[in-house]
Write a protein that binds this DNA or RNA. Structure first.
Lengths: 150, 150
DNA sequence: CTGATTGCAAAGGGTTTGCATTGGA
DNA sequence: TCCAATGCAAACCCTTTGCAATCAG
């Protein structure tokens, strides 16, 4: 099952690499379809998976039932997750391989291969919004559809 | 918006507390509906959310687009996640509050409130299955529907 | 040529929601 | 009484899949 190069794959790769942040499949699709209007969402999903599998781009596993995000960085590092708008940010904390060695699964035979460390919090924009309208709710992810907090 | 006690809420709470492991909403629903056949899935989802919000039960945030799992433990601790069947296991590694202090968000104004550390790996049952039929695929989660690996 | 890749639309899973009804405080 | 909680079904979001057509190697 050898890989072939297609215009679409190229476009998708370029979109991720040039994206300042951590785009979701939807973000990549939106970005590309403005110019290449015939691209299909399925193609975007398929290629993001392939590219991540091949280590060409990074994948930020989804958290709390949100979307999967992709990353132009391919080195292991940690992420922060805004609990209001779902935005992903990079965290400056060196990746600690020894963590997996220290961890003892409490079930016989479970073997650890890697780890993910996610810092939950709130981003600047969402905190300011919270202050303004006194919103307390923890899931106003829809408020972010104005595009500001992404 | 004060909370009321209902038979259903009680049943759901009891199901989580007596479950050996980390049940999903589906697990809880299946467990209860065998006796209380009229309970609705929506009620299970709603109550699991309320109970977790009130800190009566724990919630294990979903990982890699799998289901959300719940926990009879309410103290902060880490989990392992089987990449083949999605099973959740407890990890014996003391919860490190200082991790959040050491982490520096690379975006201005992002404030961290907590963290999740997930150890990815493979459980005993899935490893043995892999050996047997030489399956290499990383997403045979359907194989677990036989109920063994949960 | 040949089979990997595409676009489309339909299906999938996990979860949430609208609404009339029920029932706890 | 009154509003939170229920059951049901439909809607929801994100993602995957089946299929015939296309296109890279």
């Amino acid at each position: 099952m050898d890989r072939r190069n297609t215009v679409q794959k190229e476009l998708i790769y370029d979109a991720v690499m040039s994206y300042s942040g951590h785009p979701s499949a939807e973000d990549v699709y939106r970005e590309i379809s403005s110019r290449h209007s015939t691209i299909s969402k399925a193609t975007v999903y398929r290629n993001l998976s392939l590219l991540a599998e091949d280590g060409k781009i990074g994948r930020v596993e989804s958290f709390a039932n949100s979307e999967t995000h992709y990353d132009h960085r391919t080195d292991k590092h940690y992420h922060g997750y805004c609990r209001k708008c779902g935005k992903i940010v990079d965290i400056d904390l060196s990746y600690d391989n020894r963590l997996a060695e220290k961890a003892l699964p409490m079930e016989d035979g479970f073997s650890i291969t890697s780890h993910e460390l996610i810092f939950e919090g709130i981003c600047k924009e969402c905190r300011e919004k919270e202050k303004k309208n006194g919103t307390e709710g923890i899931k106003n992810r829809e408020e972010s559809s104005d595009g500001i907090c992404r």
